[in-house]
């Protein structure tokens, strides 16, 4: 029995060594878990590092000392740090993240009711960014290859540079001014029907779209210099086939790597956009809870955002290895 186990373990170890996929995925999973661990630990320490007394913040500035002490005991803040830390982890797994200081409702309920609005906003914007940036970048790469059409190139570079610089909150304000103040075509706040999604999604997507389009164009120009594109051209095919089948797949690796970072930034961007459009997501909640010193809620939202970013990176890396196993495996 023992020897069988040893054999199985040895075989598994051997397989791990021999199969680069398993090795890569194991490394990637470890990296994800370590990052998650650090994220949770830092979110926990965040509250410890805050100058001032969370118990007093919770009980209220005017509360008498005995109320504050009672509150401290209730929150478990009188326990040793390590006990608090372990309880924090247990709470994460059981969904018991404590109560919000301000609303006195369980933090987990706040997260669960508000997260969908944020995720909707982020996912819609991400989809729009990818759907627009990849074909447009490819088209401009094709049009301006080999320093052709200098006018088009200059126009593209200038417009995309300006759009990429405009941060989401400014885009949001300008959109509000144009479409809600001036012509009143679209609702300016809240989440109701489809039209209410237009402005927030556009505000969030416009900068990343411009940035990614620039990157895709630059990558297209690089791919077009490669020998295998010459081979493909020697076979005499339509431009649609050349770009769609021979160029596009080679763009995706680098484009996806960069989109990972870009999409992480968009998750953070939702905070700003939600505050402009009174979007009932977590972004408007986090600012209010930071200003209101509602620490349990702040901790939970930071963990939520951080985990979302880590998850995006994990998904991107898995997509990369599926699309282009060789490059991804070489890198590890």
């Amino acid at each position: 029995m023992a020897s069988t186990t040893t054999t199985v373990l040895a075989l598994a170890a051997q397989q791990r060594r021999s199969n680069p996929w398993v090795r890569y995925l194991a490394r990637r999973a470890l990296y994800f878990l370590v990052s998650l661990f650090l994220l949770v630990t830092l979110a926990f320490l965040l509250v410890q590092l805050i100058p001032g007394d969370p118990a007093r913040a919770s009980a209220g500035e005017m509360a008498p000392p005995e109320v504050v002490e009672a509150r401290r005991a209730e929150l478990g803040l009188d326990q040793p740090l390590i006990v608090q830390y372990l309880r924090f982890w247990v709470g994460l797994f059981t969904g018991d993240l404590g109560d919000s200081f301000t609303s006195r409702t369980p933090v987990i309920d706040v997260i669960l009711t508000r997260a969908p609005a944020t995720l909707e906003l982020a996912l819609l914007s991400v989809t729009i960014v990818l759907v627009i940036a990849i074909p447009v970048g490819l088209a401009f790469g094709a049009l301006t290859r080999g320093q052709r059409r200098p006018g088009t190139e200059a126009g593209f570079t200038t417009v995309s540079a300006i759009l990429a610089v405009i941060p989401e909150f400014l885009a949001g304000i300008v959109l509000v001014y144009l479409f809600a103040v001036n012509v009143q075509w679209l609702p300016v706040a809240g989440r109701s029907d489809v039209s209410s999604y237009v402005l927030p999604v556009v505000a969030l997507a416009i900068g990343p779209t411009a940035a990614l389009t620039r990157i895709v164009r630059a990558e297209t120009l690089t791919v077009l210099e490669q020998d295998y594109v010459r081979t493909a051209r020697a076979k005499r095919m339509t431009p649609a086939r050349l770009y769609g089948r021979h160029v596009l797949p080679n763009l995706l690796t680098s484009t996806l790597t960069i989109s990972g970072l870009l999409l992480g930034g968009m998750i953070a961007g939702t905070v700003l956009v939600e505050n402009i459009f009174a979007w009932p997501g977590l972004g408007s909640t986090i600012v209010r809870s930071i200003q209101g010193k509602d620490y349990p809620l702040v901790q939970a939202i930071i963990i939520f955002y951080g985990a979302a970013v880590l998850l995006i990176n994990l998904v991107v890396d898995i997509l990369l290895i599926l699309l282009d196993p060789r490059t991804a495996l070489d890198k590890s």
Binding site: L46, L49, Q291, I302, L310
Partner: peptide, 25 residues
């Protein structure tokens, strides 16, 4: 290097918001 790589994963606005919790407004 590993710590840098983990840090890069988080968007800087998110990090800045998190640090502003500690440092105050």
């Amino acid at each position: 290097v590993a710590a840098i790589n983990i840090g890069v994963a988080f968007p800087s606005l998110l990090l800045a918001i998190a640090f502003s919790v500690i440092l105050g407004q």
